[in-house]
């Protein structure tokens, strides 16, 4: 079985700050991580690979600048068999639609996949769009928010997905695409051996592909090809100051309920 997962390098969002004067995002010196849901995707793939055994493999695809290669080594460190970094100046600034085009082209080049697993969403954008968009481009069925995966037979998979108000068990033919988040598993740690191996055997374990190698024209890539464009960013305005209640606990409680009752909120 050949499983492909996607992974994105993202800023560690809790550390993201905006310049109070300009409202512009401060990007310098911000640590980056592999997007958490993508680690769950890789973990799910590794578990399936080990369950099926034989000549099963897990490959990963990542899009990013040269420096992203450090994060790709982390994926190999977790146990991926081979990793691809799609890196090209013309890929920069892609929105979700163009991102999915680029990643799908990378997955097509890997080829012969039985299953694609992506993280549900990335913590920098929270869009959850790239997975379903890749599925459409590859022409395979898509199930999002998957919390359990079972192989039924060589050609069929049974998954449990979350709904807004419950869960749904879905049977899908292979190949298909699943998106997963932290509920499905706990990602394993990297091992020292894997990391050492990933650097020693970088030539065999890690490929870097540009637009030509995945058959895309620069006009189809990056910011210029993206239908959505960010025209303005700003920090949200803080709400006006409220009122701090004072006195003993019973006094504050009485004062609060009195104010809410005045507004006809206690019925």
């Amino acid at each position: 079985m050949k499983i492909v997962t996607t992974a994105k390098r993202v800023p560690d969002t809790t550390d993201v700050k905006t310049d109070p004067k300009t409202g512009v995002l401060i990007r310098t010196g911000i640590p980056t991580i592999v997007n958490p849901d993508d680690l769950n995707a890789l973990e799910a793939a590794l578990q399936l690979r080990d369950e099926v055994g034989g000549d099963s493999t897990v490959e990963t695809v990542t899009m990013g600048r040269d420096v992203t290669i450090i994060k790709v080594h982390e994926l190999l460190g977790m146990g991926a068999d081979h990793s691809v970094l799609l890196s090209d100046r013309c890929f920069g600034g892609a929105d979700t639609l163009v991102c999915s085009r680029t990643l799908a082209a990378g997955i097509e080049k890997i080829g012969d996949y039985d299953l694609v697993i992506t993280g549900h969403q990335a913590i920098d954008g929270d869009t959850a769009q790239v997975g379903p968009e890749i599925a459409r481009r590859l022409g395979i069925p898509c199930v999002t928010c998957v919390i359990d995966i079972k192989l039924k037979d060589e050609k069929t998979i049974e998954v449990v997905r979350e709904l807004d108000d419950g869960t749904e068990t879905i049977e899908a033919p292979l190949p298909c695409l699943l998106t997963v988040n932290s509920k499905i598993n706990t990602p394993r740690y990297m091992t020292i051996n894997n990391i050492v191996e990933s650097y020693n055997s970088e030539d065999e374990l890690l490929s870097v592909w540009n637009h030509e190698e995945i058959g895309l024209d620069p006009t189809e890539c990056g910011l210029k090809a993206s239908p959505t464009q960010v025209v303005r960013t700003y920090s949200p305005a803080p709400k006006g100051a409220g009122e701090m209640l004072e006195g003993t606990v019973p006094q504050m409680a009485a004062s609060l309920v009195g104010k809410l009752a005045e507004k006809h909120l206690i019925k």
């Binding site: 993201v16 303005r232 960013t233 700003y234 920090s235």
Partner: peptide
Amino acid sequence: AFGGNLMAEI
């Protein structure tokens, strides 16, 4: 975007 730290107009 970015956990609500930033609003973006698109």
